[in-house]
Write a protein that binds this DNA or RNA. Structure first.
Lengths: 209, 209
DNA sequence: AATTAAATCAAACATTTGTTTAAATTTGCT
DNA sequence: AGCAAATTTAAACAAATGTTTGATTTAATT
């Protein structure tokens, strides 16, 4: 599905409002006003409020799946290097698409919209399978140890990043980083997060104990 | 604040509905019907829907803070043992109060209700300070290495647990655990989570590299 | 038993909700 | 310019929303 400029504008406005006030907390009038359009245009272009929400998820998840595929086929990287790229990629994604990920968490918890949940399920499956293959490759090459819980590993990565972003104002406050600009702070978080997670993974995957 | 049986029943019913359909997705009529009471009783007992939500958070966070204090003062445990108790406690909490934690995540993301967010902020501060003191003690006794990012460590713990619970159906599916009863599955998750996080913390805190 | 306070109820309230309508305007095409 | 399709509009729709009302029942106290 491709959308014209006006449709994209509505999608982006809706995403911002949904992520800030929730799906049910946002009325179509809110969206219309914020986007500077007539209320009827939402039904006209998307059919309904619910389908507008679905459209947000379809377009965003579509963008996400594209990048994943190419990584695994790259044969010039070692398993550990690949895993580090995955980490960078995940953190980068969530940093840059923060609002969408907020929406995603809420939607996963509510399990109200079947279409969206099916979409997210297949997205998760795709990603978990990719990482599982990556780890398996590393195990074959004897750089990763055996008996790794792939899903738990992913949960730690994604959970850490999401929790950090949910709590980012608290982080700012705790470490007295209030003078930093939003841009600088995001850069700092990115660095902190990627190195933190890479360290976690290294100790989790390498032979030692 | 103390509540009578009927009030507690309303609070629990509301918590369940709010966590399943969201605050805005749940009407006072939904709550009244599910609780088997008249709609007017909600305003009568709690003042409004919003104050009902606040009451849920006040009673739950009140219950949480009680347990925390006692741990630190226990001098018979080593820093690492204490940290492991903290992990067990956190996972146990989220396992047993799953619905409330769902609610909490959503509310933290929306930042709509100032009273609730202030409540959660001070709760987070209390917990982070506790863990920070615990780590500091361990550093003094030379069992934990220096330069630990306390908040990041907490985020990994809480994030991993929450992400696991948000994704628990996926986990079940991925490892083919569909025959397990809800009780058995929860037990399994508890074991997996606590050992996983303890392992993470061990490698994160001990000297080596 | 009488009185007072607390609890419960159905009904009504004013808004707000998502969606549709039918007319008006703009756009693209010949 | 003239026509048809696409877009945009204000208004209306019924349904649902949170809250209040005032009467009625229950419980507690004297």
């Amino acid at each position: 599905m491709t959308y014209n400029d006006k449709q994209v504008h509505i999608l982006e406005t809706a995403e911002e409002l949904f992520s800030g006030k929730g799906y049910d907390g946002t009325s179509v009038r809110d969206i219309a006003e914020a986007a500077g359009i007539n209320i009827a245009m939402i039904s006209y272009y998307f059919g309904s409020k619910e389908k507008l929400m679905q459209a947000i998820f379809e377009s965003r998840t579509g963008q996400l799946t594209e990048k994943i595929e190419s990584l695994l086929s790259n044969e010039s990287l070692s398993p550990l290097e690949k895993l580090n790229v995955v980490v960078d990629d995940y953190v980068e994604r969530i940093v840059s698409k923060e609002r969408f990920y907020k929406l995603m968490i809420c939607e996963q918890m509510m399990e109200k919209n079947v279409v969206i949940n099916d979409l997210l399920f297949s997205l998760k499956k795709k990603n978990a399978d990719l990482v599982a293959r990556l780890l398996l490759d590393g195990q074959k090459k004897k750089v990763f140890k055996k008996n790794i819980d792939v899903v738990m590993l992913m949960n730690t990565m994604i959970g850490t990043v999401l929790q950090t972003f949910i709590n980012k104002d608290y982080y700012k406050n705790f470490y007295n980083l209030i003078d930093l600009s939003e841009e600088e702070f995001k850069k700092l978080l990115f660095k902190k997060l990627t190195s933190h997670i890479k360290e976690l993974f290294k100790s989790l995957l390498s032979y030692e104990a």
